[in-house]
Amino acid sequence: MALLIDPPTWPAHGTLWSHLVSDSSLDELHAFAERLGLGRRAFDLDHYDVPADRHADCVAAGAHDVSGRELIVRLRASGLRVPARERGAAKAAALGARWDTLLPGVPGAREVGADLVRRWHEPHRAYHGPSHLVHVLDSLAVLEGRSPGVPTPGEPAPSGTSLRAQLALWFHDAVHEGVAGDDEEASAALAVASLGPLVTGPTTTPGPGADPAAGSTHLTADDVVEVARLVRLTASHAPSPGDTAGALVCDADLAILGAMPDRYARYVRQVRAEYAHVPDDLFRTGRAAVLEQLLALPELFRTPLGRERWAARAEENLRTELAGLLGAP
C-alpha cells in the first residue's frame, strides 16, 4: 500500500497542481487527505488535486513523490483508475442531467436525484460508484434498443417498463456497505421512501401482457412497488420466466461480466479494492462463492440480446477468475 503524488505540473486557476492517489484503497486516500486538511471537493473520482504549495506537505506526511507516468501505471494496476472516456459521464453534473430526464416536472424529483448522485459518489466506492451506474444504465439502453448516454433534447420521457427499470438501476446500489442482501434491502427501502412522496398518478392495475403506465408521465404507487421489487431482485439475479423488467435489470447489472478481458480484469481489481480490509484468504473464499453462485444460475442472462452479446464471454471470464482463485496459494 502506498500514497503517491506526482510533480506539480498541471496548470489551472493561477497555479500548478499535483495528483494524489493511493495504489490500493480509496479509504486510505481519503484518510490521508483528511489528515492534511485537503477538502473533499478536491477529490475527482480517483485522485485528489493538490496545489503546488501543498506538494511538500504531502511528501513529508508519507506520500511517495513519483513521476506522472509511474503514478498512472500504478493507479491503473490497482483498478482504481477511472479512464478518461468514462470520466465525463460519471461526473455529478452529467449524472444529474441524466436523472432529470426520468421524471421531468415531477415536484421533488430533482432533490431525490441529487441525493442519489451524492450516494453514488460516496468515497468508499471503488467499483460500485458512478462509473458502474453509467455502465448499467448504458447497458439497459442497449438492451432496449436505445442510444446509450443522456437522452437527446426533446426525446419523450421514459414510461412503463423502461421507467421502472431505469429507476431500479439508479437505486439498486444506492446503499452500499458491502453486505450482500442487506444492501439490496436497504436500497429497496430507500427507493420506497424517496419515490413514495413523488407519486403523481393513481394506482393502476394493468391487464395481462400490458406495459404498466405506458405513455403516462406520472409516477404511480404501483411503479414504486415495482421499483423496490426490481432492486431486491439484484441480490439473486434470478428473475422468473416472463419477468421482462426483472430480466432487463438483472442483465444490465451483470453486463460487466461479459466485458472484454482487460475491462473485466479492471472490474476484478476494483472489487478487491472495495474489500481491501478483508484478508486475502477470506476474500478468495467469499469471492469464489459469488462466482460459483453466478455460474450455477440456469442462465446468466435472461434477455435474448443479453445472451447474444455477453453470455459466452461472461462464462469464460468467470471460470478464468474462479480458476485463479482456487489455484492461489
Rank of each mutant, 00 (worst) to 15 (best):
73 V>P: 00
181 G>T: 02
235 A>F: 05
38 L>T: 05
67 S>R: 12
195 L>S: 08
219 L>I: 10
284 R>M: 03
47 H>N: 05
124 H>P: 05
41 R>F: 12
118 R>V: 13
292 E>G: 01
206 P>E: 05
283 F>E: 05
43 F>R: 03
79 G>I: 06
17 W>G: 14
292 E>Y: 05
25 S>Q: 14
94 A>D: 07
66 V>P: 04
131 S>C: 02
273 A>C: 03
314 A>V: 07
29 L>M: 13
27 D>F: 06
316 E>P: 05
242 G>A: 11
199 V>L: 07
55 H>A: 06
84 A>N: 04
136 V>H: 11
231 V>M: 11
271 V>T: 10
296 A>T: 13
61 A>N: 09
16 L>F: 07
131 S>M: 03
7 P>H: 11
31 A>S: 12
282 L>G: 01
291 L>V: 05
236 S>Q: 06
65 D>A: 15
96 G>A: 08
215 G>M: 04
239 P>L: 01
32 F>A: 08
289 A>Q: 09
290 V>I: 15
310 W>R: 13
279 P>Q: 08
120 W>N: 04
199 V>G: 01
291 L>I: 13
248 L>F: 12
280 D>F: 05
292 E>N: 00
19 H>Q: 14
28 E>S: 11
211 D>V: 01
230 L>T: 05
243 D>G: 11
261 P>G: 13
84 A>E: 13
94 A>T: 10
47 H>W: 14
290 V>Q: 13
100 D>W: 00
244 T>F: 06
275 Y>N: 09
182 D>Y: 11
35 R>Q: 15
119 R>K: 10
259 A>T: 00
327 G>L: 09
288 A>K: 01
144 E>W: 00
325 L>D: 05
36 L>M: 14
116 L>D: 07
139 S>C: 02
223 D>I: 04
15 T>V: 03
166 Q>E: 15
263 R>A: 14
76 R>M: 14
126 A>T: 09
31 A>F: 00
111 E>H: 10
94 A>G: 07
293 Q>F: 04
308 E>H: 06
193 A>I: 03
103 L>P: 07
96 G>V: 12
292 E>L: 09
163 L>C: 01
191 A>V: 02
280 D>I: 02
121 H>R: 07
13 H>M: 01
29 L>A: 08
191 A>F: 14
312 A>K: 14
202 P>A: 14
18 S>M: 11
256 I>R: 07
27 D>M: 06
191 A>E: 04
166 Q>P: 00
232 R>K: 09
179 V>Y: 07
147 S>Y: 05
246 G>F: 09
193 A>G: 08
233 L>T: 09
23 D>N: 12
98 R>N: 03
275 Y>A: 15
316 E>N: 15
324 G>F: 07
34 E>A: 15
71 L>A: 10
288 A>S: 15
186 A>V: 00
176 H>D: 13
315 E>T: 12
147 S>E: 09
137 L>G: 03
279 P>V: 13
316 E>G: 05
289 A>D: 11
216 S>M: 03
219 L>M: 08
123 P>E: 13
142 V>K: 01
153 P>L: 12
260 M>V: 14
58 C>F: 12
248 L>D: 14
110 R>A: 14
150 V>D: 00
216 S>E: 01
205 T>D: 09
